[in-house]
């Protein structure tokens, strides 16, 4: 049974706990999280980009940079709520300790979700810094709108990932999610090439995937145009993330509080 969460400001100490731990290992953590998408973007962007004509009217590196903002943000949130949250919940039993204090699971999961959003922001801002540094944008002021988009993408994939966290018996389980959800999205949602290159059926599937909505918001903002259907995309990302959080709350309650 799904019931509405009772949110309170008490989620802040949960966020703070994760922040303090992260701060201790900030440098390796930043490098680990950010080097990977950056290398893909620059490697493919420069290497492949040389061979390609303009894609959708823009240089391939710029095209790819916009996709990478969404993709690296998705990964940052997903890794956080899968592996890291699972360690805290299942391995270290940190959540059990927190729940003995005047905290509810609603607070704990919301704190974890907002923490995932924070990690996404960091990841997105790093890619954005490269975009600014290399001048891969059309209009600087429009690129600032990428920051809330990045937070929204973190919320979306954080919420979805928490469902996997609630269901998982072990770390190995997460591989299914990556193979069956994350990797297909990377290939179907227009990170590396325009969705219009796909057969119509796959294009139809793609239209429903959250990463597509993320990229439909981020890419125009990089290129220097206002995105179309903003309301639809924002709604889709909020809906995926919000319903993920609700389902995760129910499943985690069943898992821990029984």
């Amino acid at each position: 049974m799904i019931r509405l969460p009772r949110l309170s400001w008490r989620f802040i100490p949960v966020w703070q706990r994760n922040y303090l731990v992260w701060k201790k290992l900030a440098i390796p953590s930043i490098l680990g999280n950010l080097a990977d998408p950056m290398l893909y973007m620059l490697g493919l962007g420069f290497g492949l980009g040389r061979l390609l004509p303009d894609v959708d009217g823009i240089a391939y590196l710029t095209f790819l940079a916009a996709g990478t903002v969404a993709y690296s943000t998705m990964n940052a949130a997903t890794f956080e709520v899968l592996y890291s949250s699972f360690s805290r919940m299942h391995v270290q039993r940190t959540w059990d300790a927190i729940l003995n204090a005047p905290m509810t699971l609603d607070d704990v999961l919301f704190g974890e979700l907002i923490w995932a959003v924070s990690k996404s922001l960091l990841s997105g801002l790093a890619i954005l810094a490269v975009i600014w540094g290399l001048g891969l944008y059309g209009d600087f002021w429009l690129t600032l709108a990428i920051i809330p988009v990045v937070a929204l993408v973190g919320f979306c994939f954080g919420g979805m990932g928490l469902v996997m966290n609630a269901l998982s018996p072990s770390y190995d389980f997460f591989l299914y999610y990556f193979t069956l959800a994350i990797t297909p999205m990377v290939l179907l949602c227009g990170v590396f090439f325009p969705v219009s290159q796909l057969p119509p059926l796959l294009q139809a599937v793609s239209a429903w995937l959250p990463l597509t909505h993320a990229i439909d918001l981020a890419r125009p903002l990089v290129v220097g145009a206002a995105p179309r259907d903003i309301g639809l995309h924002v709604f889709a990302l909020l809906a995926y993330g919000g319903s993920g959080y609700l389902v995760a709350l129910t499943l985690t309650r069943r898992r821990l509080l029984r």
């Binding site: 706990r17 303090l20 731990v21 201790k24 270290q92 039993r93 940190t94 059990d96 300790a97 003995n100």
Partner: peptide, 12 residues
């Protein structure tokens, strides 16, 4: 509360 299983925060 002192729980049965130790759940101190190993990161701290």
């Amino acid at each position: 509360v002192v729980p049965q299983m130790d759940n101190l925060d190993p990161d701290f």
